[in-house]
Design a protein around this nucleic acid. Structure first.
Lengths: 118, 118
DNA sequence: CAGTATCCAAAGGGATACTG
DNA sequence: CAGTATCCCTTTGGATACTG
């Protein structure tokens, strides 16, 4: 019984670490929205993301995309056009966030109903 | 065809708004972790959450819990003990985040494997 | 187009001490 | 125990202008 309680707590610590690991990568006002934008179209250009994500500045977008690249969630490809365009894509790893994005979308809709009320 | 494309984009705008609504409530370094802590035990006291969420200060925890209360995700109950203890619980609405928490936990484990690497 | 550079105000958030 | 109050340094991020 004592032992079971210990396992229970150990398990909880592991879960807390995991959830905090996720949030280290995904937290912040913009990351999930950026991923969501790219995900929907598979490939997305800088200026398109800038338009999709309401309120973000180019400075922020640039910074956030770099971090997502470092964390291997997106790839950046410079296209040989005139002028230059840059395409962002989710990596295989980034695509594993699709379920979470979908859940957050659903939840956002319900939450708005609830808070905005009735 | 043009019409279909328009619907596609309209749908995307709705989804972007929804996902950004979610993140308005959940973003920040701590919220998800706090909810996760309470969720695991159903009820959880202030000092316990303080222990669960690695790195958070009492000031931050206090602030974040207030916001979660405002957004109707948690309830706060003062227990008649000596000294006073306070219990936090997820609301019905807060409990709808359980799926997302679980997904984020799973994802955090996989992400750590991937980044810390092989 | 896709950023970078600079300036600068405002917010974030830790440490510490204190209260009912 | 569960916070609040204060001090104060750090980070954030908008606005604007500039570059390849």
């Amino acid at each position: 019984m004592v032992c079971q309680a210990k396992d229970f707590q150990q398990e909880h610590k592991k879960e807390m670490r995991a959830v905090q690991d996720s949030m280290d990568v995904l937290s912040g006002k913009w990351k999930i929205a950026i991923i969501s934008s790219i995900c929907y179209y598979n490939k997305r250009r800088f200026s398109d993301i800038l338009n999709d994500v309401v309120g973000i500045s180019n400075k922020m977008l640039s910074k956030e995309l770099k971090e997502l690249e470092i964390n291997q969630l997106v790839t950046r490809t410079v296209l040989d056009t005139q002028p230059v365009t840059v395409q962002y894509e989710l990596t295989e790893h980034g695509l594993t966030l699709k379920t979470i994005i979908n859940n957050l979308t659903e939840w956002g809709i319900e939450h708005r109903k609830r808070i905005m009320g009735k």
